[in-house]
């Protein structure tokens, strides 16, 4: 079975993002970028499936500007076998990405797509569910456990009420949650090896997909700031303030 892993390059999770002065978006110039943390977990899971013999080949794919190749190289260094770069400078939305990924799935015929539940830039949490819909495949969203069982996939999903277990018919799309695994760091020799692994280049036009945006971003603004608070000396003062100043407890 081939496993396809879509990955996204985003601003590093440890960076405090800043809104651009003209309110057109957030500052990305000279800002540290990294693979979306959920995508790292997806790559890790696919590589573990290969190591366990349940997957034969792991293919990483991304869509975006040229620099996104960095994330593909990271995926290759973590153990993916080859990569597909869909190059475009268009602003991509989840529906457009899902259509691009569907075209790649149609070409490659993977038995499983493992991807992040959410990209931490747009916080959309849509692409996997959309891809699954376009393919007419089964869907496992927010997964914290994956087990292959013949033609089925047994998964555990993190839901608001607790945990839900489902059996998915393969082929399937799963989107991963934080607790699925702990992604490995790529070793230096593996980073070197990754440079020689194959990377196919394609474009939305080659794939026959129209990715024109459907949602106009009118402006991007700073969230309202909280007013500075006070440090209280002890628990008695804290309780007194909560009772008599903030009046949030009785």
């Amino acid at each position: 079975m081939k496993v396809l892993v879509p990955v996204k390059r985003v601003i590093d999770a440890n960076i405090k993002v800043r809104v651009k002065a003209d309110n057109s978006g957030v500052e990305t110039n000279n800002v540290k970028m990294a693979m979306n943390p959920f995508c790292e977990i997806a790559v890790e899971e696919a590589v573990r499936m290969k190591e366990a013999g349940t997957a034969e080949e792991v293919i990483a794919v991304t869509a975006g500007p040229t620099q996104c190749q960095e994330s593909l190289r990271t995926a290759l260094a973590m153990g993916a076998d080859r990569a597909i770069m869909i190059e475009t400078d268009e602003v991509l939305e989840p529906l457009g990405v899902a259509k691009l990924l569907k075209a790649v799935v149609d070409n490659e015929g993977p038995g499983l797509v493992i991807m992040g539940k959410q990209a931490i830039d747009g916080d959309n949490n849509q692409t996997g569910q959309m891809l699954s819909a376009l393919l007419g495949w089964s869907q496992g969203a927010f997964v914290s456990k994956i087990e292959t069982a013949g033609d089925n996939l047994n998964i555990v999903r993190e839901v608001d009420a607790g945990l839900q277990s489902l059996t998915l018919k393969m082929p399937a799309v799963v989107t991963v949650d934080l607790r699925l695994n702990e992604p490995r760091y790529a070793s230096l020799p593996n980073i070197m090896k990754a440079k020689k692994k194959p990377m196919d280049m394609t474009t939305p036009a080659d794939l026959g997909v129209d990715v024109s945006p459907r949602v106009n971003v009118i402006s991007v603004n700073e969230p309202p700031a909280r007013e500075a608070g006070v440090i209280v000396p002890d628990v008695a003062t804290l309780v007194d303030k909560l009772r008599n100043e903030a009046k949030v407890i009785s």
Binding site: L95, Q126, Q129
Partner: peptide, 22 residues
């Protein structure tokens, strides 16, 4: 919620609509 986040994008894609999240 995890319910809405699971179901709505699936329906949106089938309708060829770009969902607006949260």
């Amino acid at each position: 919620t995890t319910f809405g986040k699971n179901v709505m994008p699936r329906a949106s894609a089938l309708l060829d609509v770009q969902q607006v999240s949260e």
